[in-house]
Design a binder for these strands. Structure first.
Lengths: 258, 258
DNA sequence: AAACAATGTTCCGAATTGTGAAACAATATT
DNA sequence: AATATTGTTTCACAATTCGGAACATTGTTT
């Protein structure tokens, strides 16, 4: 753990500790976490006790292991008030779901991943699911590709130069050259499309919300089961309504179409 | 800010800083936050910069003010994997929504409030909305009263002895004696019912999920628009299905009905 | 049941870091 | 343009944090 004059080391350790609690390892013991973070167990113990006293961390009485505390639900509420695009997009998403009868979700980029920040599920019996908080890499699925395509050139280059493409499904793009082609196409078309790249049997369409400077804010996406995705009338209708919704929403953010 | 040998002061300050970002004040300036927390501006600045470097905090380039970072969506994902009741309840919630065609939501107690941790919306045009993360006091609405009623006696006494009841709507209970009566009734009936206490025009039913020791884990609730709430056949059907769902779910947690 | 291993927790002297007053840089207001 | 307000940086000093070791608790093996 390297020293840096701009950051408080103690707080840094606490944040790194919190970030250890992920979907792939939800619970940690003190010594286990110490090994993982290269910190002395006594140090970890103190950090965990401080986090626990504020309920950022909870301790299972049975196993004595530590896990994330429920207080994090509080921050979700704050986030949805803080970022105007969520609030702005919701009415357009509702109308879109009403017209298409498909699952609609809103995504943003967070730490080089796509993350879902709002969703409205399809009322149909066969429907797609996209929980708030779910993540995927920026090359798997229409939402991700759309977000990547409408990001700044700097971001795209930075992402492509370091990111190793690991396929999510057999349909995922795993070739940088191919991905660059998709990015270029997406920019021209104004939307992204995919079939089975992230979840087998599930297709999606995605289009961006842009601000008054043309900067990407988020993407609205439709998640469509394959059987309905393969109906070209339905797919075209969905595409048109999606473009309409994202354009209208972008205009509320000051974006001007030329 | 009191000294305590068990907690790391620096980390404590960071956590208190994060907790300042709430729905009622989403953005803070450095000096403003310093005044609010009774900390020197230079101290706050360093804390914010550390939090920012991990993206727990974001700075609006235009206003230079600080707000919560998107990374908190990451923790929501972890939470939903961590707590078994969420995963356990989801199939029962889905079936309940299917049968009743009403909005179903799962709630837990967090910091003396009810907080929504899962939801499945009704497919009907007139439907109730209950976003994940939304909160209310433990005396307003069926979910809250259900959670309170099935909490430990210690918790109930502690809550009632210090909490000032401020009405949410004109139908909210604002009298402690009345609330105690409702708690007793709820315990006997095994479910709670309310009409317009939290949101005008919206009724709800709620029943608890209990573990093998009869300890409260969460409550499953149906949110029903008033027009359908007033249909007694529908309401009775909903109640029966709700009780069935929560009992079945409790049994998966080892609860035994006598 | 006893012995051993592993884990969470606490203590205390040494080492390191965090703090706040003041100055500076950037932006907003008059 | 001048002034006020805010975010940011610097540095000497005070305060806190750290880690090794011991202790307490729980789990596993014999």
């Amino acid at each position: 753990m390297e020293q840096n004059k701009d950051k408080l080391n103690s707080i840094e350790k606490a944040l790194v500790t919190l970030l250890a609690f992920q979907e792939n390892q939800q619970t940690w013991g003190v010594r286990e976490l110490g090994t993982h973070l290269d910190l002395n167990p006594a140090t970890v113990q103190r950090i965990l006790q401080t986090l626990k006293s504020f309920r950022f961390i909870d301790q299972d009485p049975k196993t004595r292991q530590y896990r994330l505390g429920n207080i994090f639900y509080r921050f979700l509420n704050t986030l949805q008030s803080t970022y105007p695009v969520s609030k702005a997009a919701l009415p357009f998403m509702k109308e879109l779901q009403s017209k298409t009868q498909e699952t609609v979700h809103l995504n943003v980029i967070e730490d080089m991943d796509r993350v879902c920040v709002e969703n409205i599920e399809s009322p149909q019996n066969l429907r797609a699911s996209m929980p708030i908080g779910s993540r995927s890499p920026l090359y798997a699925g229409a939402s991700s590709k759309c977000l990547l395509a409408f990001s700044s050139d700097e971001f795209i280059e930075s992402y492509l130069s370091f990111k190793k493409l690991t396929p999510v499904t057999e349909n995922t793009i795993s070739n940088v050259t191919r991905l660059r082609t998709e990015i270029a196409e997406t920019r021209v078309q104004g939307f992204a499309i995919s079939m089975g790249e992230r979840t087998p049997g599930l297709g999606s369409l995605s289009a961006p919300i842009l601000d008054h400077k043309g900067v990407l804010l988020a993407s609205i996406s439709l998640a469509i089961p394959e059987i309905r995705f393969n109906n070209s009338d339905h797919l075209n209708f969905c595409r048109q309504e999606l473009i309409k919704a994202t354009r209208s929403c972008s205009e509320t953010r000051g974006y001007h179409h030329t």
